[in-house]
Amino acid sequence: MKKAIVIFFLAVFGYFMAITFLSPEFEADRNRNGVKDFYLEKTVSDLKTANTVTAIVVNFRGFDTLGEVTVLFLAATALGSILFKKRHHIGERTVLYPASTIVGSGAKLIFPAIILLGAYVFIHGHLTPGGGFQGGTIIATGFLLMLISYRNFSISHNILSVIESLAGILFVVFGFMGLIYGGSFLENFMGTGILNDLFSGGVIPVIYILVGFKVAAELTGLIYTILHEKG
């Protein structure tokens, strides 16, 4: 009985999925009446941003990005609050095997390069592929490398939460400044500059740098919390 119900619902779901994918002909212009052309034109002519994806994520759909950042913040906070009690009693991390000299030296050598790559990715988010989320994650990966290579590598939780909160507050402040000077929340109120310049796109690089800092701080804190939890 249960199986029959499951199969029935799967069949209904599959039918509608198939309809969605089969209705437009393959290689047909399925966005004729969509917003594609609007985005592609406005990105270059109005915003002077080279990367269309960034322009959509930060400017046209900036409010969604604020929501995503909030979701990430809530997830990190929830994890921290669940593991906080246990962390009180332990403090020291347990390691099965200490990392070898090769791993330690290699991590020290490559750590600044990873941080630089992450910073590059989120500072150049409006010019090249990537942006705040990607750059922040790359930076968190660098900290993860140091954490698993050195047993007593420690990061201050207070500094992390200050960076995180400051970036989040500044994001909302920039949104409200758009409301005051431009007329709508997260409106691009700064000068857009010249296409393909580092200082172009108005508010987009500023917001992506803030998002980068926020994501990096959140993910680093998350990994730190998990690593210091004793099983």
Binding site: N51, V53, V121, P129, G130, F133, Q134, T137, T141, L144
Partner: peptide, 13 residues
């Protein structure tokens, strides 16, 4: 853009 996200989050984290 998506490839970069997948590389950082999916492969590493």
């Amino acid at each position: 853009d998506v490839a970069l996200t997948e590389a950082a989050i999916g492969v590493a984290l």
